[in-house]
Design a protein around this nucleic acid. Structure first.
Lengths: 110, 110
DNA sequence: AAGCGATATGCTCTTTTGAGCATATCGAAC
DNA sequence: GTTCGATATGCTCAAAAGAGCATATCGCTT
């Protein structure tokens, strides 16, 4: 028996940032491309693009600077806002998981 | 902006106990009846019954002692196992929420 | 001008999830 | 033995989420 948890951020009662977006944005930053990030995650480009867009709309913040056409066809990189959010959420989630883990141990393991 | 979290217990990688079951079992204990508990939650009896059964199967543990027919048509009460689980999960969840809440404050509110 | 590769979007099809309907059964009470 | 209210289950229908297909556009390269 073990526990699972999901943590995400909401704005106006709508989900705006969770583990999925964290992975996605991290990989986009790494590859400079939505497409490659999606492939890495085994997700369709369609979905990846849609997720980012939905989050942007709900947050009212631009997360990606996207170039269409050009040298390599285009690409995308994170805005400062996005980088800040990624960092904050990442730290938050990490600490939260640790905290819950120890609570779990306290309640279920002795 | 605020956070949300879901915490649940799994066994063999299958969910077996979460907030839903907690509410359900608590109300069943209170009313002595699956039907009334379901009504209280605005959920169909069909679903409530199914959820309890699924959890029982996955856990390999009886959660309810059910009487069919009789005085008031029947009823249900929690087994000792169920009571123990409810108590444990409730405490665990409560503490976990508090823990995450303070982690959240630390990361997002300063 | 033609090609390439990535972004931008609409639309359809499938799979999953849940809601609700229809019964069957059972046992006390009358 | 008929009524009543709760448990026990199958089945169907609707709603939501996700997968994937089809294009269109754009801007460098050659």
């Amino acid at each position: 028996m073990e526990f699972k948890l999901k943590i995400w951020l909401e704005k106006d009662n709508q989900p705006v940032f969770g583990r999925g977006l964290l992975c996605l944005l991290t990989l986009i930053r790494q590859h400079g491309s939505i497409k490659r990030a999606a492939e890495d995650l085994g997700m369709s480009y369609r979905q990846a693009w849609g997720n980012v867009k939905k989050a942007e709309n709900r947050l009212g913040v631009k997360l990606l600077i996207k170039h269409v056409g050009g040298e390599s066809g285009g690409g995308a990189q994170l805005t400062d806002e996005a980088n800040r959010l990624v960092r904050k959420y990442e730290n938050f989630m990490h600490d939260a998981e640790d905290a819950v883990k120890s609570v779990y141990a306290r309640h279920f393991k002795e």
